[in-house]
Design a protein around this nucleic acid. Structure first.
Lengths: 357, 357
DNA sequence: TTGAAAGCGGTACCAG
DNA sequence: CTGGTACCGCTTTCAA
């Protein structure tokens, strides 16, 4: 771990010269250039990116903050991000919040401390209290020296926050899923295994669920909305309890695929035929949906594109802020669509998601 | 993004004083202390961790470099890492190499530039050429100022490198899997879908495969070793081709579970009964093993522990290097065991991995 | 108890 | 084309 001083000494030149060689080799005689390069080679020197970033306010790094890599939802999102990032030579660093708001704040601060030029964020900042408002505001004020560190939010947007986002319409997606269950699959007693109550995305999906029932003249029963927590086990537990309690239902709409897989297993264990006795549909269309039996119907979300588009948008913002321009924030909404498999429709052919895995 | 100067100005004190307040509040009058704290609050100041790290050579961050989060193998590993890291308040940052050696080198350099105090590395540095040797050597020489940045390698060790590692015995695991197929499942024509040829772990598994066949007096046929690339699709493709080419086999040992799932699907498509006509066993025992049908037998690897132990070891090394001590490197080997499910044994009960997901 | 100044590893401006 | 120097944001002697 030699530093630039060592290199300068070894090459017998000034630090400035070494710096020139490292950064562009312009305006330096080929003679010195060679000397410097040899010194670098000999010492195994590599420049300290952090010190450099401290000085020039540009790092070429981008942070992606997600809740957990265990949510396989994020895997293709990350691929999309990487694909775009590779084109421009950005480095991607990932961090997990495990749904802790405190951790999220700390990570944002950490990364904003000259680590990165931009942040892609799948936030778990729920609620509308003061601290959250301050936090969201701070997201717009991140900067190193005078240039802004832009933030693009994934999956959902902070309303009227001025923070860019790439999202899907969760309410609409849920509405379509439930309508599908009613119209195409002919079901009426539909249980919804939801996300944690305070999660915005979950609330939006619940709204879609309610609206679909209403529009089809089906009574809404509050006890048919059971709270889950993203994990397979929570879906399993929720449905196991419902079944054991003798709850009557002919369909299950889960707010994500993991919970749907859990629901599937609970049905299997309790001898409930899927889809005959209960149709099951998930949300996200992760790879696991297509490898379970029966294959799981789901709502396809363009995950790869979500990541790729988020990165592209982030780039626009970074370029603008580098050029000293300000550009108006916007929210980009991506379309979803129903993927029909065996868990809702006997004999449906399985579209092989596992190829993406 | 106020900086310490702004705070000092606002509070009407010197920068030194602000720094004292931030770091321990010792040796500063309560009067000034209050002023400073208010200024910090007013300005929403948070200290620039990077600049600080540049100065004190300690960041409280740890980097985890893996090939890809798409290898769900790493998910529990990361959980293990996080669990230990949370105890001590370390931040974890993750980066993916996508199996590119160049990227790996760059990432190591980046992180070693004062980003982090230690690195956990699942390397893809294969081969024995000079550049790799230099690289491995450099891994032992990472430092900020005078204190070392220790590295702990995951899954496999660089031989005689002095780089610490937490590993499993891939050869032994493979040997046991194949022996199981022969002895318990009574098979003899065993195809092995391997990892890419240049991957050390793959080579070790192939050795185990060969040795098991030899020890049981079964001829080794080179065309029964088919190269895969970790992905589900590669397993699918490999077996599809083998079947279409009329290759005769009664068992498949895949070097990871993803490929095994692919193999399962290929068999299903081609009407080959599992386990009757072909027993299938994977490697790693990731959650997906237990949600497919038939449930996949596999080699259990203590992934969570792998991560947790790696982090603990890294801590020891970091503490030592902070204290100016040098401690001898070591390689920790964890045990594996066969998990029997339906893909090798009809009616075997499914141990529900999906609860971990 | 407080402030001034040096320095962590770099870059960039300015003068020669 | 080359070197000296100030400075990025923060910590830490050293004096006062």
């Amino acid at each position: 771990m030699a530093d630039i001083k060592d290199v300068a000494k070894r090459a017998g030149v000034s630090i400035s010269t070494v710096s020139r060689v490292i950064n562009n080799s312009k305006n330096v005689s080929s003679e010195l250039s060679v000397k410097v390069e040899r010194a670098i080679e000999d010492l195994g020197y590599s420049t300290n990116q952090i010190a450099r970033g401290l000085k020039i306010s540009r790092t070429n790094n981008i942070a992606v903050i997600i809740t957990s890599v265990a949510r396989t939802f994020f895997t293709p999102v990350l691929e999309g991000i990487h694909k775009e990032a590779d084109k421009k030579g950005y480095f991607i660093v990932i961090a997990e919040t495990h749904d802790s708001f405190e951790k999220e704040e700390n990570l944002v601060n950490l990364f904003a401390s000259q680590w990165v030029d931009g942040i892609i964020l799948a936030s778990s900042a729920y609620g509308d209290d003061l601290s959250r408002k301050k936090y969201v505001k701070s997201l717009r004020e991140l900067k190193k020296k005078d240039i802004r560190i832009p933030v693009v939010t994934l999956e959902f947007a902070f309303e009227n926050s001025g923070v860019d986002a790439v999202v899907i319409d969760h309410e609409k997606a849920a509405y379509e899923a439930v309508s599908y269950l009613i119209q195409k699959a002919g079901r009426r007693d539909i249980i919804h295994v939801s996300l944690p109550a305070e999660h915005r995305m979950g609330q939006q999906r619940i709204r879609g669920y309610r609206r679909a029932l209403e529009d089809h003249g089906i009574e809404i029963r509050e006890d048919y909305i059971i709270e889950g927590d993203y994990t397979t086990y929570s879906g399993y537990k929720a449905m196991k309890r419902a079944i054991e309690a003798g709850q009557r239902f002919d369909a299950i709409f889960c707010a994500n695929d993991q919970m749907a897989v859990g629901a599937l297993k609970a049905c299997e264990e309790q001898g409930i035929q899927v889809p005959d006795q209960a149709a099951v549909i998930g949300n996200d269309d992760v790879f696991a949906a297509s490898i379970v039996t029966p294959a799981l119907s789901s709502i396809y979300v363009p995950k790869f594109e979500l990541g790729a588009i988020a990165l592209k948008r982030l780039e626009e913002l970074m370029d603008a802020s580098n050029a000293g321009r300000t550009i108006k924030s916007k929210v980009i909404t991506l379309d979803t669509k129903i993927v029909e498999r065996e868990s809702t429709c006997k004999g449906a052919k399985n579209s092989l998601k596992y190829l993406e895995w």
